[in-house]
Design a protein around this nucleic acid. Sequence first.
DNA 1: CGACAAGATGATATCGATAACAATTTGAAG
DNA 2: CTTCAAATTGTTATCGATATCATCTTGTCG
Lengths: 358, 358
Amino acid sequence: MKNEDEPKDKRLKPGDAQKLTMAEVAKYVGVSAMTVSRAFRQDASVSEETRKRIMEAVDALGYVLDLSAGSLSSRRSGFIAALVPSINNSNFSDTARGMTDALQNTGLQLLLGYTDYSAEKEEELIEAMLRRRPEGIILTGGSHTARARRMLVKAGIPVVETWELPEDPINQVVGFSNSEAMSLLVRTLAGQGYRKFGYIGGTTARDTRGSQRRSGFQKTVEELGLGPGRMISFGVPPITMEQGGQAIVSLLERWPDTEVVLCVSDLSAFGAIMECTRRGMKVPRDIAVAGFGDYEISSICHPRITTINVDCYGIGRQAAARLLDTLHTGEATGDEITLTGYKVVLRESTDRNGAPTA
Amino acid sequence: MKNEDEPKDKRLKPGDAQKLTMAEVAKYVGVSAMTVSRAFRQDASVSEETRKRIMEAVDALGYVLDLSAGSLSSRRSGFIAALVPSINNSNFSDTARGMTDALQNTGLQLLLGYTDYSAEKEEELIEAMLRRRPEGIILTGGSHTARARRMLVKAGIPVVETWELPEDPINQVVGFSNSEAMSLLVRTLAGQGYRKFGYIGGTTARDTRGSQRRSGFQKTVEELGLGPGRMISFGVPPITMEQGGQAIVSLLERWPDTEVVLCVSDLSAFGAIMECTRRGMKVPRDIAVAGFGDYEISSICHPRITTINVDCYGIGRQAAARLLDTLHTGEATGDEITLTGYKVVLRESTDRNGAPTA
DNA sequence: CGACAAGATGATATCGATAACAATTTGAAG
DNA sequence: CTTCAAATTGTTATCGATATCATCTTGTCG
């Protein structure tokens, strides 16, 4: 398949860059390495003419700055670590986008890690990140292993916990009460006349936000005098669309007169609704369903799903902003809690008229 | 809110770790720094007893290895860079999972970057990654800016392009022909008797895989003598669920007799189906719809969506495996193409009987 | 019992950039 | 024509770990 006589010279000596150093660029231009180093930063004082010559040489030689050397010397790694539970979850990806946007033009890069909802994996990742000396770290949630906590405190860098309100924060917090948010949803639906509430969530406490939502549900149902909630636990968090479908079947078998089912997330709510539809039940006519998180799918699917909209993007943006503040002011501000908003979004899936709007 | 007299001593001198070096650990234990360095690696020869004492000291002092110093000295950064178009896409997150799994126990970490389907952002990210001297890099797709290509070649590290088959590969390739995959779907549906084909995709060529799918559709429809396809372009790739809904409305307005609509991805197919349902049309009775990618949603929603299943996980796993091979054998193997599989998954949304199964 | 291999540990130079300070040039003010 | 401050560039030491080579034990075997 290969033409030996191709005149293409695409292969410009691979590996050259690995050996190229700033000193060689400097020699090529006829200045000192220090001047080349300065030329790469916008604040430094280098004459426009010299900088131009240097940059041309950089281009011609194909030199790429070596940050591993630079950060050792300057003691600034130039990145912020962020750990989220899952890569494939639009809520967390919105949060990540918020962080990325807030870090624009700060010279700081975002490095994402995925904990897969596991405190052990989180601990491993925290260590892996700290070994590269991030300038700050943003975590999802407030429960960490003891060793993880110890490492974080020792690291002496700003730590921001997000997406919930930990009882014992490490440093700063940007989030909201998952329990109260779920409570608001229960009260809103109760206000519409619903009385018999069911709940679908995951089995274990791995997902702390999930269990907070569950306890918010439980507590509120009892406060409203609506008997104990009908709770189904199904699968290891994060529960999937498919598990949502299986869960609502179990729930309705056990408590057939349930009027409305709240789900730990929109994804399980979607699975539940589709399974009901498949079995010939109409949502909300036969059973109402609500989710949590306001994923894209909930405003698209049929019927559209009632949910709690969380300011995912804002969480990320503010978390990064708080972290930058702390970096600039020199860690004096620390230990603050920034509350982020949420709101109930009523849609067809809990419409009391039973007829989807138009 | 804060209790000043709390006896908790959680705050163990933040910042200590930043000053702690290997030399201090060494002094504490009474060995040389070199021995501590060796203790951190499994291959090195350190007596079991010494290693134990060192690790106890590391634990007691809360020392965390500094890789930025280590990688400068060893010239091994210990990470692989991977660039994917989108953070929030289960296809790519499966690919990322495949890569992570393949890198287990290799001592290499995966660093993910998101290009947002933009060649310019990809170039920026490639430079940002190369500045940290990755030991290899995995890209999605085969079209890059000229400067990006130059940097990649110069870097002298293994490069793997994935998810498609570039005409002019940089180094190794792990993927499949998006054009042929879409072609297979067209032929399969034509085999079921469908004659009037529509297509929904994004507007620009930003998403090269998307345009390959489109041209595969176009070409095959013509080859089969089924006239020119009815193509609708809607929105900047990656097109959303919502845009899928808008697109099918335009398409059916323009060509009301269309029998089956193929979509560039399952997400737009889902949006299209939901919009049809909302407007009182039955899928597949009134219009059949198929997607691409076999996302989770397609096997859950109602009706379930016919699609092309791509071995996303395998792409990631094999890309990382090929890269590791190259690293071990010393780049001799290079320039290979590894084909990954795909298959048509027929589901309710294109069922000729019109009645969803069961 | 001497010799030598294998194992364990230490000393020193080094990776490539940057901080900190020194030196030089330039230009404006008196 | 001085003088001094600002702008520009250079020199040297250093960041913290590791490669490399040297040294020192220990044990085995003829």
